[in-house]
Each structure stands twice: as C-alpha cells, then as structure tokens.
Design a protein around this nucleic acid. Structure first.
Lengths: 129, 129
DNA sequence: TATAAACCTTCCCATCATAGTAAGGTCCAG
DNA sequence: CTGGACCTTACTATGATGGGAAGGTTTATA
C-alpha cells in the first residue's frame, strides 16, 4: 500500500503518518525504489492504534511508549495498565478543573441580570483580586 | 508604573502584556519619552481581568470581546451573560468528552489483568476499528 | 507512445499562547 | 560616571496539525 491508501484505511492523514515516522512514534518504513513508503496490513493496525490512543487523549510521548508496548510481544500488561490509569488520573484532574470553571461561570451568570443595563457582576468579579 | 511593576501587580507577565497589546486584546498604551510603556491603576485592573478571563478558559477572541465590554460603560449586561453561558456550554461539552475518555479507559483497564504477561485488552482494543 | 491526472517526495510556512534569548537603550543609586 | 536593574524590539521555540510549492513517479487514456 502507498501512504494515501494506508491513510484512508487507518484514519490517519498522510501528513501525520510522515510526521509520526519523523518524530519516532512509529518506526521508519521501507521504501519502493522510487522512494515511496510501502505499507502492509499490520501498519494499518499500528496507525489505527495511534489514532485511537490520541483520541483517548494520550500525549505523543505516551503514544510512543504505547506503540512500543503494542509492538513488543513480551511486554507486561501491567505496564500498559499503569499508563492507562495514570492517564485516567490526569483526565479526572482536567475534568475537575473545567468543572470548577463552569461552576464559577454559572454562579456569576446567575448573579447577572443579563438585560439592557451595564451593571454586570461577571465583569466586576473578573477585575478584582 | 512601568511594565514590570504592572506585571507584578496584575499577575500577567511583561511578555504577555506586550503580546496582548500587539494582538489588540488590550489597547495600545502611552509611552514615556524614552519609549517605556506607562501604566496606571485602571490598567492593573484590566490586566487582572484578562488573566482571570483566561483562567476561566475563555479564548483570546472572547477575551478581546470581554475587554471591550469591560471598558464600555454603556454595555448591555445581557451580552456578557450570553458570552458566559455560551462558554459554559463549551466547557460542559469538553467535560463530557473527557469523561467519555476516562470511562472508556477505566473500563479497559478494569478488563486488563495488569500482570507480568503480555495479554492486554487495552492494546487489543486500540488497534481494532 | 505521449500526455495528463493522480499520486508521491521533501521542504517551508502558519497556527496559538507562552517563554526564552540577544542586542541595545534608559534610569537610578552609589 | 559607572554598574545594575530595568526597558525596548526582534527572533526562536514549543506541539500537533494543516496548507502549499516544486518536482519526481505511476497509471490510465487518447
């Protein structure tokens, strides 16, 4: 398969496939005589893996580690699980942060009449220490 | 006040104050004869406002709009409230998205033994379509 | 067989908010 | 008057992604 075909099949853009190769998230692939990258079925799976790890919010360094584990048939599943649970912790922290913002804003908005007049507790609150 | 002092007082770095001025989030400030930016008390409030709007997750274009409303004494509080509530909607959507990721990961991690062996439903799941 | 379309390659640029650095000018205290 | 702390602009980088240009390859069609 050429890069366009594997991009289609995996859902990762050709642009990003080259980028992932360049930064070492996926290994360098063999080339045709003309220099075209040549992919097989396993590569479709690998790229799909990368895409889905990204969709779960893993950082690029984590994805790189995960791809290494995915390719290593002697991996310990404990390592994978550890990464996953650490990521859950970060996700929950982010959720807490966003919930805090949302709560604050909802409270401020609730205090604001929201009419034609200029008085606005939202603006008032935002410039005080 | 010079930029360092107002940075200290507002909690916005001098670097970012110059940047905000350049991209028009805050108005251009007057200069001393030597070209130094000269700030007053109101500018401390304005910068604090920008910082706190950012901390609530508003985008830069939104902050720009909010600063405009903050400076406009004939604003309608309804406009501010509308922006705030739209942002709440986006925050809640983001929270839903992250919650989905977290839930998926927790489920996968729960299914993974997490021991010395290579079998791992997390990795298996991530390369399937 | 010639050519055009549809690929591929590398390289460069842009995003966005933020930080760092360098080179040079200014202000103040000793 | 000099040293240090401040200021100025301008350039660089980040990280994941997209866009485009210039040029080579493959394939289908006239």
């Amino acid at each position: 398969m050429n890069i366009g075909e594997v991009a289609q099949a995996s859902g990762v853009s050709a642009k990003m496939i080259r980028h992932y190769e360049e930064i070492g998230v996926i290994p360098k692939i063999s080339r045709s005589m003309a220099g075209y990258r040549q992919y097989g079925e396993a590569d479709v799976h690998m790229l799909r893996f990368v895409r889905q790890a990204r969709e779960l919010g893993f950082s690029m360094p984590e994805v790189k580690t995960l791809v290494g584990l995915w390719r290593n048939k002697r991996r310990k599943s404990g390592e994978v699980k550890k990464l996953a649970l650490e990521h859950v912790v970060r996700l929950e922290a982010k959720i807490q942060q966003l919930s805090g913002m949302s709560k604050t804003l909802k409270h401020l908005a609730h205090c604001c009449k929201g009419d034609e007049r200029p008085e606005c507790p939202i603006l008032d609150k935002l410039d005080s220490p």
